[in-house]
């Protein structure tokens, strides 16, 4: 059973008097442990899809199952629990809380789950060590470099040990030098910890670490809507967006390596 199964998802927004149809019958299945890159021009519905996957928003129509739960049947409270426990967010602009130290930022999701102080602090330091910031725990976000901030954000996303990491343009505000470790880290989460990583990106480097690229256009998936072996489509390489094309996997070794992990 796939971790995530979306069928015919639609999402309409009201913007004043006009209705914006952000998603128009989107199909997508993702299985556990995959690294997915969601690509597409702006306005194609990437962010909307991301919000729905992250339980920040609910679809207008279609069926959406996340880990066996029907998102449309969930009440607000249950959605909160879902995004608190099952999903970790990484944002383009880091979105760390400026008044809190790196450690406290990582502790924040645990606070809302009612985890006790000592346990929280220990786990937060552990996670910061994991992302290579053991010596930065007491620093405030404005004392950290962009790459470091994004790594704090990754640590925060991991705080409640979620199954899915949602990264929205994680390298969008970073140069290649600081972006690469961030991408490596995300890849590692899939390979070593079996997390499902979904990256919304324009960045070909980010797409390159993905097991599969899902291409969106005008609110529909035009390529990569299903995982390998499920029979819907293969793994298209970066730069192509033809639906159903079954091209060779990416030439990057890292992708092949990632594919092995769930083969």
């Amino acid at each position: 059973m796939p971790l995530l199964e979306f069928k015919g998802i639609t999402k309409d927004y009201k913007l004043g008097k006009t209705v914006v149809r952000a998603l128009r019958g989107l199909d997508l299945t993702i299985k556990e442990g995959e690294v997915i890159a969601i690509m597409g021009p702006s306005g194609s519905g990437k962010s909307t899809l991301m919000h729905i996957v992250g339980a920040l928003d609910t679809p207008t129509g279609g069926t959406a199952f996340l880990d066996g739960q029907d998102l449309q049947q969930l009440k607000e409270r249950q959605l909160v629990t879902l995004r608190g426990k099952k999903v970790g967010f990484v944002f383009q602009t880091f979105n760390l809380i400026q008044t809190l130290s790196a450690q406290r930022n990582v502790e924040l999701p645990m606070i809302f789950q009612g985890i006790r102080k000592g346990e929280r602090a220990r786990h937060a330091r552990e996670l910061l060590t994991k992302v290579g910031l053991a010596d930065r725990v007491k620093h405030k976000p404005n004392e950290l470099s962009g790459g470091e901030r994004q790594r704090v954000a990754i640590a925060r996303a991991l705080a409640n040990d979620p199954e899915i990491i949602l990264a929205d343009e994680p390298t969008g505000n970073l140069d290649t030098e600081s972006g690469t470790p961030v991408l490596e880290m995300l890849k590692k989460l899939s390979v070593e910890d079996g997390k499902t990583v979904i990256i919304v990106t324009h960045d070909p480097d980010a797409a390159a670490i993905a097991d599969r690229i899902v291409r969106l256009r005008d609110g529909c998936v035009v390529a990569g809507s299903g995982y390998e072996g499920e029979g819907t489509s293969g793994v298209p390489s970066a730069g192509r967006d033809v639906e159903g094309s079954s091209l060779e996997p990416s030439t990057l070794g890292i992708t092949t390596e990632g594919s092995d992990s769930h083969a």
């Binding site: 992250g54 920040l56 909160v80 995004r83 426990k85 979105n95 999701p109 809302f112």
Partner: peptide, 16 residues
């Protein structure tokens, strides 16, 4: 506003 959004995204309830 954004901070509130972040708090909610990482699992804060409205009551929190």
């Amino acid at each position: 506003t954004k901070e509130i959004g972040v708090m909610k995204a990482v699992g804060a309830k409205n009551s929190h």
